[in-house]
Simulated scan of single mutants.
Amino acid sequence: MIKPSRPLQITALGIGFAFLYIPIISLIVYSFNDSPLVTVWTEFSLKWYRALWTDDELISAAWLSLRIAFMTACASVVIGTWAGFVLARMGRFKGFTLYTGMINAPLVIPEVIQGISLLLLFVEMAKLIGWPAGRGLFTIWIGHVMLCISYVAIIVESRVRELNPSLEEAALDLGATPLRVFFTITLPLISQALVAGWLLSFTLSIDDLVLSAFLSGPGSTTLPLVVFSRVRLGLNPEMNALATLFIAFVTAGVIAANYFMQRSERRRLAAVM
């Protein structure tokens, strides 16, 4: 088998990274542009960040999206962890195929179909029992949790299958209850998968447009909906400033998560040795 040369590998990797990151870098650079034209550079300025700070609609939408994303990530990790643990450890119980299909369904069903289904469900529930009275934060949150649980379950399942069960079996032999074993031994060992699932759920929620469009109502417009409605009327340098702030926020979050996960892993290895 012929292996590609190292210069060729480096070149291909460089082209791939350039394709991914040059647009992001250009967006960040033009967020400091004084010109109202997105693609015409004039001089350095922070005017669009000041304009963004006084844009009540964008700030309100961003705060709503952050709250929904945080709630979605937390709920998805709690529910998805148990779902993934069942897939990895409970064997092929009666109804296992149906259970697996239900967990994986949101991954393959188009979001448009999911959004329409949930919208019809909420409308019929409002007619029958009077709840929900209107669509807003809670209905969007339910839709996002439904979408993100599958991703967390798959991540947790793959991590649990890699664990050595001897540690858990030893704890059970020493008299620990299954619940105590899960929280004392299993949970710390899969903590990196939980953090990865939380970050992925947060990103999927804050970026979601389709489900939010179906499940939102008056006074509950999320950030992607506001951005999409404005971009349709033309590119605005304010969007560059907003995107730059989100890139900085996400980058800082990922770096912090990686730092704490690596520190936790080093402590665990040191304790084992």
Rank of each mutant, 00 (worst) to 15 (best):
I116E: 04
P4W: 05
L189I: 06
I22D: 15
D55L: 00
G101W: 01
W198T: 12
R67W: 01
K47Y: 05
I142M: 02
I190S: 00
I79A: 00
I68Y: 00
A126H: 10
G91K: 07
E111G: 09
S117E: 08
G115S: 06
I129N: 12
Y99I: 01
N164I: 02
S229M: 09
W198S: 14
L87Y: 02
I2E: 11
L119V: 03
E169S: 12
S76E: 00
Y49T: 10
T97Y: 11
W141K: 05
A73Y: 00
N33I: 08
I22C: 14
R266F: 12
L66F: 01
Y259L: 14
A213E: 13
A271R: 10
K3A: 09
V254W: 08
D207T: 08
K3T: 11
L147Q: 05
I25D: 03
A61E: 06
F182T: 07
D173W: 01
L52Y: 03
N164H: 06
G219H: 06
V40Q: 12
W82D: 00
M1C: 10
N104H: 11
V38Y: 03
A193I: 01
L174N: 04
I206L: 13
N240F: 08
S35Y: 07
S45Y: 11
H144K: 09
G219L: 05
S212V: 03
V156I: 04
K127N: 08
P237A: 05
I116N: 02
V112C: 08
R161K: 15
R67L: 02
R180G: 09
L20E: 07
L147V: 06
M261W: 04
V210A: 07
V250W: 11
I247N: 14
I206D: 12
S201A: 09
P165W: 03
L199V: 09
T184F: 11
G197V: 02
G197D: 02
M90H: 13
R92A: 07
R267Q: 11
V112I: 14
G253S: 13
G143H: 06
S158K: 09
V78C: 01
S191F: 08
T54E: 15
L64N: 10
D34C: 02
L215T: 05
Y21F: 15
L199F: 05
L172T: 13
Q9M: 14
G130N: 12
G14E: 05
I129C: 10
I15V: 15
G175V: 09
A12C: 13
A270Y: 12
P188Q: 09
L233Y: 15
G219D: 04
T100D: 13
S216D: 06
A241Q: 11
A171Y: 03
F70I: 14
V250F: 12
C148L: 04
I149M: 00
R89N: 07
L215Q: 04
R6Q: 13
G219W: 02
V78N: 02
L58P: 10
F249L: 15
S205N: 04
F96I: 03
A153K: 00
V29G: 13
G143L: 05
A105S: 09
L187T: 03
V152S: 01
S150W: 02
S229D: 14
T81E: 00
L147F: 06
